[in-house]
Design a protein around this nucleic acid. Sequence first.
DNA 1: CACTTGACCTGTCCGC
DNA 2: TGCGGACAGGTCAAGT
Length: 288
Amino acid sequence: MPELPEVETVRRGLHELIIGRTVVASKSDNPKSFPNASGQVESFLLGATITGIRRRAKVLMIDLSTNYTLVIHLKMTGQLVYRGKRAFGAGHPTDSLVGELPDKSTRVTLTFTDKSKLFFNDQRKFGWMKLIPTDEVWALPFMQKVGPEPLEDDFTPLQFAERFTRRARTSIKAALLDQTVIAGVGNIYADESLWGAKLHPQRQVNTIMPAEFGALYTELRLVMNRAIDKGGSTDRNYVNVEGKRGSYMDFARVFRREGMECTRCGTTIIKFKATGRGTHICPHCQQP
DNA sequence: CACTTGACCTGTCCGC
DNA sequence: TGCGGACAGGTCAAGT
């Protein structure tokens, strides 16, 4: 579910709300959601103070004073929602997608010194969190393989195009979704940026011209920066740390807009299956 | 090695 | 209403 802009929105929210808090209790319902290998929770999480929140690709890292890090992947339906008794004492905000917590999709609950809580909800149970020594996080296989952050200041159009040479014979959409090519792109921003660059998702990578890669680079950064600005996209499940939806879908140009008119040319947006994923294009702007 | 497919889960929506 | 099947924003392991 969450892609780079959604995970970044969660990171910012956690930074506001839980830095400096000390964990006093941890409850997990589902061992796959939060395995407690050899009692690490008792040794390195309980009593630990949160010192920092980082993000790499779609992975969140909550750094602890014990020199351990909670590494978290939300996958398709994961949510991290913070509740302090003050703000939510009398019912919950009407714009929240999440009701009383815990609920039936709550997999992990962390409680802080002041009784406020961080809930890890995950309907489909694909997501996970793990306790890992902070200086070993970089050595995780995913961290070793994942591509560059597309929004970094020093990431150039030339570097962007170069990353795709390893996937020469696959489709541009499959390559965009490959986390080892570029970090953090998922189905929504793949479709949105391909529309912006007027590229058909099934174009073979090695037929794409330098100028087209340049357009895709610009559109991907534009779309992702705008999405961060809007607090991410809520298609079904995604919420921020306050349980509220993101508003990027109000600005989407093809994603979930099948049957509606292209804002550029008026042609009807269509949806089909590509790379096993729902794919949205304007058939006039994006020719094969 | 490059590439594709199936598996991991639960919930919802759509057609009969 | 009930039921079966398709589908949902991500990654891995295992297959060709």
